[in-house]
Design a protein around this nucleic acid. Structure first.
Lengths: 149, 149
DNA sequence: CATAAAAACCGAATATTTTTCAATTACATT
DNA sequence: AATGTAATTGAAAAATATTCGGTTTTTATG
């Protein structure tokens, strides 16, 4: 066995899918070429960013999900984007938003279990610029990425 | 003009895409039939739930993004899933999680603007069972659905 | 450890889908 | 009304997915 699955998941989580033009054509009762044209236009305009797979994360060893609210240190406060972009390269992080209110950033993080989360916390979320964090732990995921589970 | 774009976005946000088998085969340096086999297996096992498009939501009139923390009323507290499942049918809601801590639910909501959000708030988030909410408004989306913007 | 059963892998052929191309039609601007 | 641009479309070509049959690998069991 080659354990292709792991590599496949990695590729599919961030892309490597494509719209099903003929299926969409049937659903919308339009010619396939028209659907094709519209999709290509959306891509060119930067509206359509990527096509990707959504998994039942519990079944692929990413069942431990946490929202992390972050307070930045005073020197980072003026430019939260710098740190946000730095964090965005980590595969464990599903989303990063800069928000209003008591916290500056909110992350959504997926790991296998609490041990892996703790390791991530220590290695990534302890860095300079992050002053304080609050973890909201997910007990059950009902809907993700617009897909109901 | 037929304004196919709106309908297409609606379809693509929740599915109607498919893995690019030959592209994946090349990337992983494996035969296409092996990739095909592995993907079908993941689908059958319920690991792979859907393939879908990710948009630059600002460019498709869904640029107003809010995290909503929810406290349930005492009578709903014991079964948060009932309300969560009821909410999951709304297209504006990207994700629903049942969480630990001071709040019971966290939603991620995408609307065109604050007016649309307020309308959603009044019509959906005022329902019985929801005792108190706190909105965290997104100023900038750096990463979404594992895709950097 | 031997053997059988199940699961994973893969090349060749087939079926299906996407993409290109060359019109045609709709829309906007002057 | 004239003109240029954008959107739509059918037919053909190109590319891709799927099926099939057989092989190899893994797992389960005595």
């Amino acid at each position: 066995m080659k354990n292709i699955e792991e590599k496949l998941i990695e590729e599919l989580v961030t892309g490597n899918c494509t719209p099903q033009i003929s299926k969409l054509a049937k659903r919308l009762k339009e010619p396939a070429t028209t659907i094709h044209y519209n999709i290509k236009r959306m891509e060119k305009e930067g509206k359509l960013l990527a096509c990707k797979a959504v998994f039942d994360y519990k079944k692929i060893n990413r069942g431990y999900c946490t929202y992390v609210l972050i307070n930045l240190s005073p020197d980072e406060y003026g430019d939260p984007e710098r740190l946000a972009k730095e964090l965005s390269k980590f595969d464990e992080i599903e989303s990063i938003d800069i928000i209003t209110g008591d916290w500056e950033l909110v992350l959504k993080i997926r790991t296998k279990d609490v041990d892996e989360y703790y390791a991530f916390l220590k290695s990534v979320l302890s860095r300079k610029g992050i002053e304080r964090i609050k973890s909201l732990n997910t007990l059950k995921q009902v809907k993700t990425e617009f897909i109901s589970i």
